[in-house]
Amino acid sequence: MELIECKDLCKTYGTGDLEVRALDGASFSVEKGEFVVILGPSGAGKSTLLNLLGGMDTATSGTLRVGEKTVTALSEKELSAYRRKDIGFVFQFYNLMANLTALENVELAQGETGMTAEEALSLVGLEKRKNNFPPQLSGGEQQRVAIARAIVKNPLLLLCDEPTGALDSRTGRAILGLLSDLCRKDGMTVIVVTHNAELGKLADRLIRVNDGKIVENALQTAASPEDITW
């Protein structure tokens, strides 16, 4: 069975004249352990799709199943639990809590099962900086803390929205290497959103979005992060 099954997913913002169809009948599925890249121009609806996958927003119509759960049928409380247990989220702007240390930021997401916060930090190579506060870390380091926070609970899905958007190419490559390692070595399902076509080469599965619709959904052989240029 596929890990993700998405059927006719729609999301509209606003009403009447101001109505925007951010997602217009998206259907696709993703297997467990795949490294998925979602590509598309700005405003295509990539973030909207990712937010729906992560249970941060509710769809206007259509169904979305992740693992055993039908996400589109969950209540707000259940969505909260879904985010807590099953989803790891990495944002373009890290979104760490400035007044918690790196370690505490990770602990925030630590569950009963999964690894400990320190393990997660050493996985991203930041065990030495665990007692620093985010403003004392570089952008790349902050993003690694964010990734540690996302993976500490061993999520079903790791969702990343433009994770390298605010980083230079070398740091960006390191982050992507880290994400693909997580997928290859630890068997985590990773979905990365980007508008950078070059990054598409890293994917096992490439999904192209345009104007709220899925225009391509293809399996491919992934390249290694060292091989791509951007």
Binding site: Y82, R83, R84, F89, N95, M97, L108, A109, R149
Partner: peptide, 14 residues
């Protein structure tokens, strides 16, 4: 605000 939003994303109950 932002911290609250982040905590919500992490699935911490309201």
């Amino acid at each position: 605000f932002r911290d609250i939003a982040t905590l919500k994303v992490l699935g911490i109950p309201n």
